[in-house]
Write a protein that binds this DNA or RNA. Structure first.
Lengths: 87, 87
DNA sequence: ATAATATTTAGATATTTGTCTAAATATTTA
DNA sequence: TAAATATTTAGACAAATATCTAAATATTAT
């Protein structure tokens, strides 16, 4: 939960999640979508992975990143607590 | 949105939101719930206010803080995009 | 085997963040 | 008006963060 909020607290990482919502992508494809160095994107991907918001699968020399919505569900559930009626 | 995610990226601030979900509280009441100095809590309250997650109303020498769910709705909506079916 | 490609790891640096104490401001009470 | 109470503002500092370049690792192609 803590890691998820940390991961979400960055515009680049949120954009990466939105890209992956459309389709799985390799690290290189993701890098090409930004004007940030490869290593920086790699670091962002690592944080997203730590938060379990994405998963990574190696295929040959490529690594495919995918969105993992499990943690999204947890956050949605956590946020919903604030929607309960005021007593 | 950016400010909201920043505000949520801290356990103390998330706890403050949960306290305010139960009832409005003064700054002092909130301070008493934590083992953090008053100025630090005041700073956290300021960030929550900047993010529009809380509102503050002065009543005499007290300042009452309340939860504001408008931004919560925005975040819920934003998170929901990741729930759409994969094509 | 060597070169090329894809990605990460390491190390450095400037900025941001959470916390503190001391001081300032505002309100109420004696 | 002076003292007490509630809260914030200011300034300092250590820890965390986002970014970079250079180097390392792993895979594929020549």
């Amino acid at each position: 939960m803590n890691l998820a909020f940390k991961a979400l607290n960055d515009a680049t990482r949120r954009e990466i999640l939105q890209l992956l919502q459309e389709r799985d992508m390799t690290a290189g494809e993701i890098v090409d979508k930004f004007r940030i160095s490869g290593p920086s994107i790699s670091h962002h991907l690592d944080l997203l992975k730590q938060a379990k918001l994405v998963t990574a699968v190696k295929e040959g020399q490529f690594i495919y990143y995918s969105l993992n919505t499990t943690v999204v569900d947890e956050i949605l559930k956590w946020m919903m607590q604030f929607k309960s009626k005021k007593k």
